[in-house]
């Protein structure tokens, strides 16, 4: 019997254990030594455990207690919201040295937003993609954006034949272009699947995400038929002088890492009566936006007078987004 059996997990202890392993009733002395070995093992294990989780300490530093304790957006009182927004603005100031204005834009009563794109006109130049990227403070390195444009051969509507990685001169003669972004569905599958109600449809039809409530399970990403949702795989990086300071809590404020985000029809603009950034950027005038409850609205006229195509209509998601043709 060796006496240094408490030093290492595999070395000396082996002989001890091996020699008496099957004895059901070890003598008291060995039992206490065994206890000591177990204690040593436990200590080693605990130390290894602490070492293993050490990266978490750094992650914990990034999350304040106030953020951790923050409750669901719909449960926040006006006073809570004021404090939350103050905190978020202070965090941006501290991290980026930029003064941003985070508003809490609520739906305008009597509005239901609808978007339409003229596929006869869209030429796939990608200005909308870029405008979205800048307006919504997306990660610069990945050119993130809520809009993807498919280049499609004429004569089909099957996206199987589409291609998002086209480049060069557009439009190509045998192609047409299909921009896809969140369709703000009236039956949104992404909202149904969220286990914590971190995403919901508001009265004006916009599907929003509470970035401070989302747990990042990405079930909504799996459920969305339009590839409309994006996950923050890492913290988005935006140079301080490029941060768009006109922000809204449910919209384009800088999003935390590990949560899902999506197009909000630029609610920080549209709920203040302005047109979305992607529409203003469109050089072809293919994009139309408006309030479908207003009988005199552009969007209403299009739906009543133009041929309209609804993307994946057969899925029953009832998009508030239409494609039309001249």
């Amino acid at each position: 019997m060796t006496t240094t059996n408490d030093s290492s997990p595999t070395g000396d202890g082996s002989q001890v254990d091996g020699s008496q392993g099957d004895r059901s009733l070890p003598v008291l002395q060995h039992s206490s030594r065994r206890t000591a070995v177990k204690g040593a093992f436990a200590t080693l294990g605990a130390a290894a455990f602490v070492a293993a989780v050490s990266p978490l300490r750094q992650a914990a530093k990034q999350t304040t207690a106030a953020e951790f304790m923050q409750t669901h957006y719909k449960r926040l009182t006006d006073e809570d919201k004021r404090q939350v927004i103050e905190r978020l603005e202070a965090e941006v100031k501290q991290e980026h040295g930029v003064d941003v204005d985070i508003a809490d834009d609520r739906p305008i009563p009597g509005t239901k937003f609808v978007y339409a794109i003229n596929l006869s006109v869209c030429n796939g130049n990608g200005k909308c993609v870029e405008a979205c990227h800048k307006e919504n403070n997306h990660d610069r390195a990945t050119n993130q954006s809520y809009i993807r444009v498919l280049e499609m051969p004429k004569g089909t509507m099957d996206m199987e034949h589409g291609n998002t990685t086209y480049s060069g001169v557009v439009p190509k003669d045998d192609k047409f272009y299909l921009p896809v972004q969140c369709q703000q569905c009236d039956e949104p599958p992404c909202v149904d699947v969220c286990p914590v109600k971190a995403t919901w449809k508001e009265e004006d039809g916009i599907v929003v995400v509470d970035y401070n409530w989302c747990i990042g399970c990405r079930y909504c990403e799996a459920a969305c038929p339009y590839h409309a949702r994006r996950f923050n795989w890492k913290q988005a990086e935006v140079p301080a002088d490029e941060i768009n300071p006109d922000q809204s809590y449910l919209s384009n404020r800088l999003r935390p890492v590990g949560v899902v985000e999506k197009c909000t029809y630029c609610l920080h603009r549209t709920r203040r009566g302005k047109l979305p950034a992607c529409l203003e950027a469109c050089p072809t005038g293919a994009r139309v936006f408006g309030n479908i409850l207003d009988p005199d609205s552009n969007i209403r006229w299009i739906l009543e007078n133009k041929r309209v195509y609804i993307l994946k209509e057969e899925l029953g998601t009832k998009p508030a987004f239409f494609y039309y043709f001249d």
Partner: peptide, 9 residues
């Protein structure tokens, strides 16, 4: 005609 200037990476 235009040239596509911005693509997601």
């Amino acid at each position: 005609k235009m040239v596509v200037g911005f693509k997601p990476r």
